[in-house]
Design a binder for these strands. Sequence first.
RNA 1: GCCCUCAUAGCUCAGUAGGUAGAGCGCGUCCUUGGUAAGGACGAGGUCACCAGUUCAAAUCUGGUUGAGGGCUCCA
Length: 665
Amino acid sequence: MISVKLPDGSVRELAPGATAMDLAEQIGPGLAKAAVAARVNDKLVDLSRTLSDGDEVAILTKKDEDALDILRHSAAHLMADAILRVFPKAELTIGPVVEDGFYYDIYLPEGKITPEDFPAIEKEMDQIAKEAAPFKRCVSDGHDEIFARYKAIDGGNNKFKSELIAGIQERGEEMSFYRHGDFIDLCRGPHVPHTGFLKNVKLTKVSGSYWRGKAENDQLVRVYGTAFFTKEELKDYLHMMEEAKKRDHRVLGEKLDLFTFTEDAPGFPFFHPNGALLFNLLMSYMRSLLSRRGYQEVKTPLILSEELWHRSGHYDNYLENMFFTKLKLRDEQDRTKVREDAPEERPMAVKPMNCPGHCMLYKSHQHSHNQFPLRYAEMGLVHRRELSGVRHGLFRVQAFTQDDAHHFCTPDQIESEISMLIDFFTEVYSAFDLNDVRIELSTRPEKSIGSDEMWEKAESALKRALDNKGINYVLNEGDGAFYGPKIDFHIRDVLKRSWQCGTIQLDFSMPERFGLTYIGADGQRHTPVMLHRACYGSLERFLGIIIENYAGSFPLWLAPVQVEVIPVSEKFADYARRVTERLLDEGVRVHVNLSDDRVGYKIREASLKRIPYAIVVGEKEQSAGTISVRSRDGQEQSDLTIEAFLGQIDLNPPRRKPAPIAAEE
RNA sequence: GCCCUCAUAGCUCAGUAGGUAGAGCGCGUCCUUGGUAAGGACGAGGUCACCAGUUCAAAUCUGGUUGAGGGCUCCA
């Protein structure tokens, strides 16, 4: 007999050669039925895996997070099988699990796969799922029957898989295959017990990709799908996708008349009055928090000499993303001609970042450690050239406004600065009902400036700050800015999509490059530490995020129009005007609709524009000096005085309650 | 930048085996003066993204450019 340990600490006796499935059966028939895979000594394995004496075993059911990944990985096999049936010429490459599903990259020597092919593929998949064919793990040495069978699966000449196999053999790893029915694929596993688990699978989209992600390699077709354990979960997911489409900020931006783009300025948004209002609200909310946090707002130029960008390191590391100005002159002999090659004594460049400007500002005075930490903030408009294929609504533009700031401080102030910022940023996000914040730490990238020692110092300072605050974070090796490591804030919206907003970047390089100094307590000159930070990140992107997060139904303090006043007929236009003016005097963003339409139509219009309140006035209200209020969710209140209405609503952004001052003796 | 797809009125879209365009919404005028998600009539609006080519004839076919959408890569 062998004995294994369960997660609750209990020990079970099993016959030698028993599998994880045997264990599940021994524990109970319910568990055996629900079992998907097992975790043995912290490794995910198939239920069919035999257990050894002393193993620590957990049986995974659909409730375990890892189980869903296993299901989806199995679904990728199912899809690959189906695709080979529909497209016999296809060659498989890799098929991993991704955040909300899976994909398989496929090489097609001819033809293509489009969403029109999905029904045919899904039909095959349903068929295979119905067969409930068991997933069988096989290990091969590369010369046996299993291998031969595998080679035959997609034509026998799959160079992509051959490359993968060569890699496995080179590393001396075990080569495992998984088989269901006649289909067999190179795979590490584990998988669900049989294809019967894969009844709630749906293909979602198809796109192009490259072998190993490199553009110079073969072009592949990437077919995406998703899978769930239950029909309900799949339905909810598909519903969520629909919802996301409806919330698309590019669509809402047009419907709510917030912003547009034109072909003459690709990637540069034009904010309409309502959009500009929202943009300014974001800005003024941020400004209202700055002075409390010890910031001083500054303003620095958009265009600075090219030479400055050489000094900062941007020219060497960021050139492709920068816009440069170019001098043009009329030809002296022929005024109709323009010289494109006019020599410039001082070529200029448009700023892609605000930091060099703030360094110049810093240099305009002498500084002492007694002033530290010094915090300069700027709503800085920066321009960055983007590859044409990456522009995307407000999420990725070529000119954007950063709620930027730079802290100048001594090395031992770093930790408290970061601690302050984490609290600050999370407070801001929660004001927009974004409470799911994930923090990532990114370290030195390949292209970077500064010594190893500097990077080591900076990275460990950030780690220390996070650890001491007890923050959980994800580590992204090699993902830092070229001048320093960074902490990024990733936020999940109501649809669980993740967005990068805030960033805190530590920089020991730029202060040195610009010769920044301060006088320390010892009376000597020292180089300050510089901390770059932005909370929204880009106001444009953040605006896009909250448009989607709120689906255009902004909370009252953010709604471009807060109240629409609707007279029942032309006879009450004057009264409607008086109500409107009164609300205007109270600081309400109010619009009166005096057009020649019926009440129902105007209500509908206000509601499509997601205006929080519609105030309807007619005979009744006019004679009583009251209003009727209909809120965005359809609730109606009649015979309300304006004072009573004003008493019900809060026009201000959410505010953190200040701590009371206790009396001290 | 790379791959795939697309571009017709302000918006959403229809159309043509190649013979220079149509709907709904919106907009304007008029009728209607109304009580909580669409009252009615009439009207104005388009070099069919741009540039070439094929053709007697191109919005339609071909090539290119630009922009947009979905991905890859990159990123705030």
